[in-house]
C-alpha cells in the first residue's frame, strides 16, 4: 500500500499517458500513484485510460491549469 508520485509537469501529450502507463505496470495492487500534470488534454486522457483499466481514479485541480490525478491500482 505504498504511494508513488510521478511528475509530468511541462510534458506534452502523449508523454504523461505513456509515463503513467509504464509506472502503473511496476506497481502492485493497492498502491496509489499521484500524477502531477499541467496539460489540459492529459487531464482528460490519463483518467480515462486508468478508468478503462479498471482502476479507481480521482482528479484534483490543485492550481490554475494544474492537476493531480490519483490512481489506485
Amino acid at each position: 500500500m505504498a504511494e508513488f508520485e510521478l511528475d509530468c509537469m511541462g510534458e506534452a501529450c502523449p508523454v504523461p499517458l505513456m509515463k503513467t502507463e509504464k509506472k502503473m505496470n511496476t506497481l502492485s495492487a493497492g498502491d496509489v500513484l499521484v500524477v502531477h500534470i499541467d496539460h489540459s488534454c492529459a487531464m482528460k486522457n490519463v483518467p480515462e485510460w486508468a478508468r478503462k483499466q479498471g482502476y479507481n481514479v480521482e482528479v484534483e485541480e490543485v492550481d490554475d491549469g494544474e492537476w493531480d490525478v490519483i490512481i489506485e491500482k
Binding site: P14, L17, M18, C41, N45
Partner: peptide, 9 residues
Amino acid sequence: ASLRDPCIT
C-alpha cells in the same frame, strides 16, 4: 490523438 492513441494505448 485520434490517430495516435490507438497506436499507443
